[in-house]
Amino acid sequence: MTNTTPLRTVKARRTFLENVIRTLKSAPTSAWFGMIVILIYLIAAVFAPLIAPYGEAEVLGKAYLPSSAEHFLGTDQLGRDIFSRLIYGARNTIGIALLTTLISFFVGGTLGILAALKRGWLDQGVSRVVDAFLAIPVLIFALMMLAVVGKGIGNLILILALLDSTRVFRLARAVALNSAVMDYVEAARLRGEGTGWIVFREIVPNILPPLITEFGLRFCFVFLTIAALSFLGVGIQPPTADWGSMVAENKSLINFPVRTFPYIPAPFYPAGAIALLTVAVNFVVDWFLHKTSGLRDGS
């Protein structure tokens, strides 16, 4: 708001920042753990070239070296530094997953809210197409599509975003339906407001909490799917580092746990990175859901 008004400035009881701090203070340990882990991952992803001791695809010497002062987590089958690749992997895996989730939310969310608001043929049409998509397992569908249009990061993002947007559509439609039947939406229609106003100013603010929660969960699923596709060899292509393909590349080592000290097989590092991020995101999302759904302890 512009404060050029001659009004006595009305004091807001709490500023946005104060609210954020207040909310963070009340966060449980699990949420704090999740937030710190996510923060570390993000820092690793953004500043990868600064943090990583070696290049992403730099071949440094012998393959399958155990961890040492030089190679913190050892080297892989081509003699690349696993620790460096793990850090670059964060950049690729998280970046691609985030982009995919954003696209899927934009497409699925918009269509879902419009379907809930307009009903009729739009709702029926989109819903039935989505039902058809939902009938096919994601992984198989993604494999098929990738086989048709060819491998590549762009194709991967678009295909996963498309598949994921069907699930986002379902949720967005369901929660928007609850909001679209409210009198305030009718009041806006009676006022003569356009669809844009009704969607973004009347409905979206009310359905944001479940959508943000879903965003966190969807992000995990996308990122697991990418890892799975990379493991199968159709996801992110070498030499680009990514956790899924790192597991795949080093999978032969899983039977030789005695190689590195303290006896952790090399594929466990990227797999652990995947698992840790998934758990962290879920902790944060859980807390957020609990917070916004108005659930009280002990009731």
Binding site: T5, Y184, R191, N206
Partner: peptide
């Protein structure tokens, strides 16, 4: 159900003022 729970009074009452009468900013307030 008639008032959007995410809007403040300023926007709830201000919107028709702006929408129908074209008042903005300080005039609207």
């Amino acid at each position: 159900t008639a008032l959007n729970p995410r809007q403040r009074v300023r926007d709830i009452i201000g919107r028709p003022v702006e929408f129908y009468l074209g008042l903005k900013g300080a005039d609207r307030d």
